[in-house]
Write a protein that binds this DNA or RNA. Structure first.
Lengths: 104, 104
DNA sequence: GAGTTGTATCAAGAATCGTTGATATGAGAG
DNA sequence: CTCTCATATCAACGATTCTTGATACAACTC
């Protein structure tokens, strides 16, 4: 539980940046190499590399070297897991929703 | 699209903190007043208030005043919406997944 | 009204994160 | 082996964000 919470925090933190969300959107459907990411997102190369590292460390993406090029791809299980956890939170809330539990 | 991205960023940023995730877990199922939150989470009162403000501004929770007490509750639609967006990302990825789109 | 209680805001220090430029690594080309 | 290219790491700065203590506000009690 503690560990899950920590993991969730690092996932959400990784998602909490516009550049990184745009990277994830570009990765939907297929592997993309860093050069293509750099072409579309107009940011400095070391910065892109840094954001990719954040996504990698959170487990949201995977990297694969192909000669000189690095290809990044989405890990759909991690994304799905997080989405499912949020949906579960919402449905648990609606189910357990006892209308009038007051506390004070 | 731009606006959605910004909104998503602020939601994920709000979720990217252990204390705030614990608050959300406590809010599953029923309204909780600040005094109860303060009792369980062992943090200073102004800090709790600050985290609640962050959650409020992101739209994840709603506040209701009842006399001297403030009661906070989850907004399940926002949570569900975000969970659905993540799940959609994952399923889009698996569907569109053309196996060999190389770029470089 | 004055006092008390629950919560929010403010100001300031500490820690973290995003950004940049310089440099390093790793792999193919010549 | 050297050169070049794609990407990663490092060091430093600026900007947010977390945290704390002091204070303000809002509502109830007396």
């Amino acid at each position: 539980m503690e560990q899950r919470l920590d993991e969730a925090v690092s996932l959400y933190r990784a998602l909490g940046d516009e550049t990184r969300l745009r990277i994830l959107q570009m990765l939907v459907g297929s592997e993309v190499c860093v050069c293509d990411l750099a072409g579309e997102l107009e940011i400095a190369q070391p910065l892109l590399s840094h954001h990719l590292k954040t996504l990698r460390e959170a487990g949201l993406v995977q990297a694969r070297r192909d000669g000189r090029w690095m290809h990044y791809s989405l890990d759909p299980e991690v994304v799905e897991g997080l989405g499912g956890a949020l949906s579960k939170l919402a449905s648990d809330h609606r189910e357990r929703g006892a209308p009038d539990i007051k506390c004070c």
